[in-house]
Amino acid sequence: MTERWWAEDWKEFKETLPHQEEPYSKRSWGNGLHSLCSFPGKLKPAIAHHLVDIFVPEEGTMLDPFAGVGTIPFEASLQGHTPYAFDLSPHAFTITKAKLQVTSATTTSDVISELENYLESNTPTESAYDTVSEFGLNGDIEEYYHEDTLEEVLLAREYFLSKPLVELSPSELLVMASLLHVLHGNRPYALSRRSHPITPYAPSGDFEYRPLIPRVEDKVERSLNCDIPFNFTEGHTFQADSLKWWPVEVDNLDAVITSPPFFDSTRFYSQNWLRLWFAGWEPEDFDSRPSEFVDKRQKETFNVYEPLIRQSRERLKEGGVLVFHLGKSDKCDMAEELRQIAEPWFDNYDILDESVAHVEKHGVEDKGSTTNHMYLVLY
């Protein structure tokens, strides 16, 4: 293997932009588990597919330090590589870990039965009701649900938070991720009144009882029916801050491939607030926790990326590569900013500039001011 095993494939990608052509350009392209749970700003699976295919050698090892809902590491698993994934968000961690592990219909059915029994045997606390009547970013939580559905949502949250996220089994994670998906939306599959499947805009319409268990069962069944290739390789997911010291087992990597929040992206916690609450955040966390996340920290200085870039260099094999998928706007060229920070650790770089004028909004009104996607390759 030459030091730049990826050079020819990368050159072809730059010339052809295959993710813009059929079949990759289709909105539905990719494994169905990419849609395990809606997520704002999710990287297009076709882009993740090609970046992994280009930059990770056969049966290689890679890391996504800003994994989000696991689009890049899941593509690595599908291609037979060993992926590592970091994310600070508890709901993103849940979804990614569910995608990167294999479970069965039998064990998942057992979890749903246990959850159903919990819903039938318990009653939410008064403090839980107090919280949902007083907290919400687009309206109080209680405004989203019929009172009977709200009771089930509160108990389901209590059920999943009864033990740490890191201790949940693959089946428990799949059920929780499925529940996160149906937590809000604008179609009958959702538990909420009419809102939006990506961002929980203020609800509208009648209060209608929507039972939780059948909707979760339906989503889980569809997820279990997604085709998983024989060479699928389970990954390793950490609820970790990629801008701090990485776990020691994340080492000897062939590639680090990631798409951090764009400089002009909408605040992640306001777009994800209802799912973050279900995954464990309390009202006070929305005041204190956002300062830990890179989308806010990078507004002050891009130097926050220095520990990530330095550790990438240290954990990569000789000839390994660090790849960023970034956003560019009139206010900020993220690729150039990070290229300069990377100079002490990476001798070479390449940058690809791709217009995103063709990208759909999918019903989301605020897509930020990003005009181009940038690919920064450091080696």
Rank of each mutant, 00 (worst) to 15 (best):
L224G: 07
A67Q: 01
H358V: 05
V52R: 05
K361A: 13
D333F: 00
K26F: 13
M334A: 14
K299W: 01
A7D: 08
Q20R: 15
W245S: 13
L168W: 10
T149G: 09
T199G: 00
S104M: 01
D227R: 13
A46R: 03
Y129Q: 11
Y379R: 12
S77C: 15
L243C: 09
M374F: 00
R275Q: 04
E365G: 07
N231K: 13
M334V: 01
E234Q: 14
F346C: 05
K296A: 06
E143L: 12
P40D: 03
N272G: 11
D347E: 15
P57Y: 07
Y209I: 00
A240Q: 15
L119M: 08
V153I: 14
E217P: 01
P247K: 04
E282V: 09
S204L: 02
C37S: 15
P65W: 01
L150C: 09
K44F: 06
R157P: 07
V153R: 05
R297V: 04
I47G: 01
Y84E: 03
E142G: 03
F74N: 02
V256I: 14
V175R: 10
R4D: 11
V111H: 08
F293S: 07
N225L: 13
S109T: 12
T370N: 12
D285E: 04
L224T: 02
H325F: 11
L137R: 10
E306N: 12
N372F: 02
E314C: 04
A7W: 04
E336D: 14
L51M: 15
R27H: 11
Y24G: 04
R193M: 13
L183K: 09
T103W: 03
P197R: 12
P124F: 10
F230A: 13
D64I: 02
S195A: 11
Y144T: 08
K44D: 10
E249V: 04
A46W: 00
L183R: 08
V220T: 05
I54C: 02
R289Y: 08
D227G: 03
G41D: 02
V102G: 00
M176K: 14
G60L: 01
T149W: 04
Y375G: 00
L154A: 10
V175I: 11
F238R: 14
K44W: 01
L168I: 06
M334E: 15
L224C: 06
F39K: 05
D330V: 04
H236P: 00
K97N: 13
